[in-house]
């Protein structure tokens, strides 16, 4: 699959725009704008994780918020143990992002393996409902488990640290998130161009043919699902640090819906689709949220219109429909 020149140009604009606007905002002394763009970068990262299974693999996971929330809880729980000095599972807590991130990815990947093994036995509507139900199971567990705040959530009193940067400064935190997002986009492009990516996309189109040429679809799908959960979990850890708070609502089913919306609005399977989608969603919320308290009504109408009439998302509208070989 080759990106068209227009899509390539659009991607460059998105990547640079995402970086330049916060730099301008620092100069113009608009910290709110920096935070808003940090949110866009984090949500784009979470969406990118989902895009791997939904966009490339055609697996509609309606429970990806569970990894987002789990990543958030990893950051929150490790920070709390570092704060109060109590060990967790015999190990000390930590406030170092470079330790928290691998932990968040490992834990999310393990959960993705369990959910994946069970739910990838099914497909279609069953898969949608089952991923939703498993996410809901963890959500209710987080609500009723009192040790880490239960329904009230878990605050992070001091943002976790990154060597050489001051994470309490909005621009520094933004640059961390932007950097992680760019690395993840590079990884996504590599995966898409690899033999593994080719197999994954072929499974979306016709699993029986893939099986007939000697590739077992289940293993490929499971690997993609685990990688996807790890990336979305990493985004959750970043989000917990941005809002200095983690709560069950991060894994609510509406969050799973928002992640799907991000991909669809941006363009399913496109490299920068989640970036465009996250920018649209956050921009919509900030713009219309200030005008009317009923902005979700308009979001619903826009989404409905996009599904019924503009398939291919924003990037599809601008760069033209993708040719799938």
């Amino acid at each position: 699959m080759r990106d068209t020149h227009r899509e390539y140009a659009l991607n460059t604009v998105l990547a640079l725009g995402l970086l330049l606007v916060p730099l301008w905002a620092l100069w113009a002394d608009e910290p709110f704008t920096i935070t808003m763009f940090t949110r866009i970068a984090i949500l784009a990262l979470a969406g990118l994780g989902l895009n791997l299974v939904l966009g490339l693999g055609g697996m509609v996971s309606f429970g990806h918020a569970v990894f987002f929330g789990l990543g958030g809880y990893c950051a929150g729980i490790l920070a709390q143990h570092a704060f109060n000095g109590a060990p967790i599972l015999g190990l000390p807590g930590t406030n170092q992002m470079l330790i928290i991130w691998p932990v968040a990815m490992l834990v999310s990947g393990l959960l993705a393996a369990v959910i994946g093994v069970l739910s990838l036995r099914t497909e279609g509507v069953f898969f949608i409902m089952i991923t939703l139900a498993f996410a809901q199971m963890v959500y209710y567990f987080a609500i009723s488990w009192p040790a880490y705040g239960g329904e009230d959530g878990l605050p992070i009193y001091v943002r976790n640290q990154f060597p050489g940067l001051n994470t309490m400064r909005p621009l520094h935190l933004f640059l961390i998130c932007w950097g992680v997002l760019m690395l993840a986009l590079g990884l996504f492009a590599m995966v898409r161009a690899s033999r593994f990516g080719a197999a994954l996309m072929a499974i979306r189109q016709n699993p029986d043919r893939v099986a007939a040429v000697g590739i077992e679809p289940f293993g490929i799908k499971l690997a993609a699902f685990i990688l996807s959960g790890m990336i979305t979990g990493l985004a959750g850890a970043l989000m917990a640090d941005l809002s200095r708070f983690t709560s069950p609502s991060m894994m609510a089913w509406t969050m799973s819906g928002e992640l799907i919306i991000i991909i669809i609005l941006g363009g399913t399977g496109r490299l920068f689709g989640p970036v465009a989608g996250a920018a649209i969603l956050v921009g919509f919320e900030v713009t219309f949220g200030g005008l009317t308290e009923h902005w979700k009504l308009w979001l619903g109408l826009v989404l409905l219109g996009a599904v019924l009439f503009a398939r291919g998302g924003l990037i599809g509208l601008i760069a033209g429909r993708e040719r799938l070989g």
């Binding site: 939904l54 799907i260 919306i261 619903g300």
Partner: peptide, 13 residues
Amino acid sequence: HLDQVLATFALIL
């Protein structure tokens, strides 16, 4: 099913 999920999710909103 993806379109159905999205459109009916929009209806919920």
